[in-house]
């Protein structure tokens, strides 16, 4: 089937099987940050943005993205690096496997929620599983990161 979509701002016209999974397709286009951590829509590792909303690329069929914009971590390099530095400073990560889906959702949260409480942060991110850590370092990193971004805005 013919499909036209934008991946990280780049227009792609392609011919695909009707049941092509979005996740595997994005990987085939070089977006290796998009990974599969489960078969049941539970882990959040495959998170990408469709029209700027975080969704599960393991779940929605690729065809649903026809005529639409997908953003992956590859399209948010500098922002991801900025937040990644906070994660590193807090020693939040262990194996790092959960990282890409987690960062995609943190950056979505930053756009969607204004000054979230700890409970709101936890609730927003509860669909991102990490098998190594206890999420405590991540939470510290997020709070410091949000504070610093807000500070930046305040100085503008």
């Amino acid at each position: 089937m013919e499909i036209k979509l934008w991946i990280n701002g780049k227009l792609i016209k392609d011919n695909v099987e009707p049941d092509t999974p979005m996740l595997e397709y994005l990987r085939s286009k070089g977006c290796y940050s998009v990974k599969r951590g489960c078969e049941t829509s539970n882990c959040g590792l495959c998170t990408v943005w469709l029209e700027d909303k975080p969704i599960l690329s393991c779940t929605l069929p690729l065809m649903r993205a026809d005529g639409k914009h997908i953003t992956t971590l590859e399209g948010l390099q500098s922002e991801a690096e900025e937040f990644g530095a906070f994660l590193a400073d807090e020693g939040a990560e262990q194996c790092g496997f959960c990282n890409s889906g987690f960062i995609m959702n943190v950056l979505a949260m930053k756009r969607e929620l204004n000054d979230p409480t700890e409970e709101e942060i936890k609730e927003y991110l509860t669909g991102n599983l990490c098998r190594c850590t206890g999420y405590v370092g991540q939470l510290r990193a997020i709070k410091k990161y949000l504070k610093s971004v807000k500070g930046d805005l305040g100085n503008e």
Binding site: S41, K53, T59, N105, Y124
Partner: peptide
């Protein structure tokens, strides 16, 4: 709000 996660609820 207890159903899986934000991304899941944006999907289904």
């Amino acid at each position: 709000r207890h159903i899986v996660g934000t991304q899941f609820r944006n999907t289904v």
